[in-house]
């Protein structure tokens, strides 16, 4: 039975943001890295939120700008802290695959930051990573 630490993407390869980052930068990073969301961490690398594509879209829609060309300017002025989801579902490295699936399903999250005893980021598991974990289990049979 694989554990979170076996499946997770390790923190050196995890894209994270800080509360003061502007969402134009976030959008461009999502685009370049082909991801749809990421954890927001404090200066001690502890996850304090999650920011996703949907948060960005909702934010721009709410602003009711009249011209598309205004979107970029607006996004440059908006900070991650204003749009992120503050409730983060995290898990410890020894969490089992089934427990992770349970969390994803019950809490309806797309990604789970994996943290150590001090709450510091060790890695990230997305739905895709979870599925890969399941797949490698099946392959081994």
């Amino acid at each position: 039975m694989p554990l979170a630490e076996d499946i997770m993407v390790k923190k050196d390869r995890v894209v994270t943001f800080h509360t003061h980052d502007d969402i134009s930068y976030v959008a461009q990073t999502f685009y370049k890295k082909n991801i749809s969301g990421a954890p927001v961490v404090d200066l001690e690398d502890r996850p304090i939120g999650v920011v996703s594509e949907l948060d960005i879209i909702e934010s721009v829609k709410k602003s009711r700008i009249e011209k598309l060309s205004q979107a970029k300017g607006l996004m440059e002025k908006t900070k991650v802290s204003e749009i992120m989801t503050k409730k983060v579902v995290t898990a410890s490295p020894d969490t089992s695959l089934t427990e992770l699936a349970d969390l994803m399903f019950k809490k309806d999250v797309n990604r789970i930051p994996i943290v150590d005893k001090n709450g510091k980021l060790l890695g990230l598991i997305t739905r895709g990573d979870l599925l890969r974990g399941v797949y490698s289990q099946i392959e081994q049979r």
Binding site: A27, Q28, F30, Y31, E53, L54, I56, I57, V60, K61, R64, I65, E66, K67, L68, S69, A71, K72, M75
Partner: peptide, 29 residues
């Protein structure tokens, strides 16, 4: 502008198509 639009719309083209209707746009767009 389209590069920026593209970066923006890459994020959620489905929602953005509806969103676009509420905005005034350039003729070309």
């Amino acid at each position: 502008m389209l590069t920026e639009t593209l970066q923006f719309f890459h994020i959620y083209p489905v929602v953005s198509i509806e969103f676009r209707r509420t905005m005034k746009e350039l003729d070309l767009e």
